[in-house]
Amino acid sequence: MTFDSNSLKFDENGLIPAIVQDEQSGNVLMLAYMNKEALQKTLETKETWFFSRSRQELWNKGATSGNKQTVKRLFFDCDQDTILVQVVPQGPACHTGETSCFYTTVFEDEPSIREVVYEVADEIRQRKDNPVEGSYTTYLFREGLDKVLKKVGEESTEVVIGAKNHDKEEVTNELADLVYHSLVMMEILDVTIEDVKTILRKRRPKKEVLRND
């Protein structure tokens, strides 16, 4: 199916809001505006282009700062008046140096669990690069791969036992232990979460994508 930008609902100034999202973490990075030319350049170059309302000109994100955004996917909403752009950021999205422009919290009922696996993986990496005496993760890295593999095997067995007992709480706790030790193993073997996600994505059926001809 062919995509026609004329089907989008640009405002009276010829602009449409574009939400930019980190395709890996899911974080909303920024909100900017595109006109038809900026949208076309974004599709052609696979980098984000926007229209500056204050300067009244096109701008390529990161052209000056180097913090470019590689476009992976682009969607429009059900009303066809907003664009969602999923990107791999090459640096902070915000001019303040923050990762996202939305860094000021107004309300938070409880911390988000969306990125917790990435947070644990990052902490594991930090322990590898900066060992801390008394840290269990540091201990595992010091003992080496064989010790970590032993723990992965033990936790896998505990998951199976919990499942056989139909014990949801036990299974949940043992799965958390298994994920943690697997992440340590992955760090040793230089396997990333994205590597695993890529394999899972390849095993999924592809969706139809609109072509911009």
Rank of each mutant, 00 (worst) to 15 (best):
185 M>K: 15
12 E>W: 01
204 R>D: 07
198 T>H: 11
126 Q>M: 13
176 A>Y: 08
118 Y>P: 00
22 D>Q: 08
204 R>W: 08
59 W>I: 08
213 D>W: 01
106 V>M: 11
147 K>G: 00
116 V>K: 11
65 S>R: 05
7 S>T: 15
18 A>I: 01
183 L>G: 07
13 N>A: 10
8 L>F: 03
132 V>Q: 13
16 I>S: 08
88 V>T: 14
123 E>W: 03
131 P>I: 10
19 I>M: 09
190 D>S: 14
91 G>P: 09
111 P>I: 08
208 E>P: 08
50 F>E: 13
124 I>N: 06
205 P>G: 02
206 K>M: 09
92 P>F: 02
85 V>T: 14
58 L>T: 13
159 V>M: 12
136 Y>D: 06
36 K>C: 04
64 T>Q: 11
148 V>H: 03
45 T>H: 10
13 N>W: 02
193 I>M: 14
176 A>F: 02
114 R>E: 15
116 V>M: 12
102 F>W: 13
122 D>L: 08
43 L>P: 10
189 L>F: 00
88 V>D: 13
202 K>N: 15
181 H>R: 09
180 Y>Q: 09
18 A>N: 04
90 Q>I: 06
194 E>M: 04
206 K>T: 14
45 T>V: 04
126 Q>P: 05
21 Q>E: 15
202 K>E: 15
163 A>Y: 12
210 L>N: 07
113 I>N: 07
31 L>W: 03
14 G>F: 01
75 F>N: 03
42 T>E: 05
62 G>Y: 07
93 A>F: 11
99 T>H: 08
128 K>C: 04
45 T>E: 12
178 L>R: 06
112 S>R: 07
3 F>N: 10
139 Y>F: 14
172 T>M: 12
62 G>H: 10
184 V>Y: 02
38 A>C: 05
159 V>T: 03
145 L>A: 06
193 I>W: 09
105 T>A: 12
206 K>D: 13
58 L>W: 02
201 R>N: 08
82 T>W: 00
74 L>M: 15
54 S>Y: 03
9 K>L: 10
120 V>A: 14
122 D>I: 02
110 E>C: 03
33 Y>T: 02
171 V>T: 14
109 D>T: 14
149 L>C: 01
63 A>N: 12
10 F>D: 03
128 K>W: 13
31 L>A: 05
92 P>C: 09
34 M>F: 00
147 K>I: 02
193 I>T: 02
193 I>H: 04
80 Q>M: 04
177 D>H: 15
31 L>Q: 10
165 N>L: 15
174 E>K: 13
104 T>A: 11
118 Y>F: 07
158 E>S: 06
50 F>A: 15
108 E>T: 10
117 V>Y: 01
134 G>L: 00
11 D>Y: 07
34 M>G: 06
161 I>S: 04
79 D>A: 04
170 E>G: 07
151 K>C: 03
172 T>P: 00
102 F>D: 07
76 F>P: 00
203 R>C: 13
24 Q>I: 12
39 L>V: 13
163 A>C: 07
32 A>G: 03
69 Q>T: 13
124 I>D: 04
212 N>R: 09
10 F>A: 09
146 D>N: 11
203 R>Q: 10
142 R>V: 00
201 R>W: 11
128 K>T: 01
134 G>Q: 05
83 I>N: 09
135 S>E: 06
68 K>P: 00
171 V>N: 03
162 G>R: 02
33 Y>V: 05
13 N>Y: 04
1 M>W: 13
